[in-house]
Design a protein around this nucleic acid. Structure first.
Lengths: 102, 102
DNA sequence: TAATTTGGTTTATAAAATAAATCTGTTTAT
DNA sequence: ATAAACAGATTTATTTTATAAACCAAATTA
């Protein structure tokens, strides 16, 4: 897939849930676990795993705090994540540009 | 993921190689195995499997012929595949629209 | 006629997504 | 005060998917 015609798609972003999370974090700049779960309609387990992956890649920062007595997991996109997301969107264009013209 | 904000991404199309194949078939309307393999830089095994999946979903038609004495596997997109591809591209917009504005 | 190449398919392995189970602590009802 | 239910997650297990490796049949080349 490393041909001129199609740019490779970052596997870390080429996932429905991780893409949705990144899309949300691009808008709001900071969001907690509960908010992300509601907006994406994901299960908690799935969201937890995918946040770990994004965090492990350095695409998001995760801060564990408390809101009152309840735990609160805050997420925000890093610069690296921002760049990666824009690059992913750019790469996608090489696959879907023709379709947009139709 | 069935929330208003993010449209679900057809898992059959949300794959780098299958997406590349569909993108090529949208352009050329007919292509053989060897051409698809070259353009996507995929391994033959991977391409074979992914063509089966697209074919099984009714997104492409596969016709096995001969070119001279050599086997030749011809592929073309079906109407169903065309619709699915356009729908996929539309759904993608719900994830990446903000990024395009940046 | 023995390699080698072409055009693939099948099988096995690795990675990813997802669901189910579990855990810690809090709130509510009894 | 205690049990039951709930919030906010994490961990583990299962299923699905992607990918690579191995293989096969026919054709070509040496």
């Amino acid at each position: 897939m490393e041909q001129k015609q199609f740019k490779p798609l970052d596997p870390l972003l080429h996932s429905e849930l991780r893409l949705a999370v990144m899309s949300l974090l691009l808008e709001v700049e900071e969001a907690d676990f509960v908010y992300l779960k509601k907006q994406t309609d994901a299960t908690a387990g799935n969201l937890s795993v995918q946040l770990d992956k994004l965090s492990g890649a350095g695409y998001i920062e995760v801060e564990k705090t408390f809101r009152g007595k309840k735990p609160c997991t805050l997420c925000r996109m890093t610069d690296k994540g921002h760049e990666a997301f824009l690059a992913y969107v750019d790469a996608l264009q090489s696959y879907i540009l023709q379709a947009n013209k139709q």
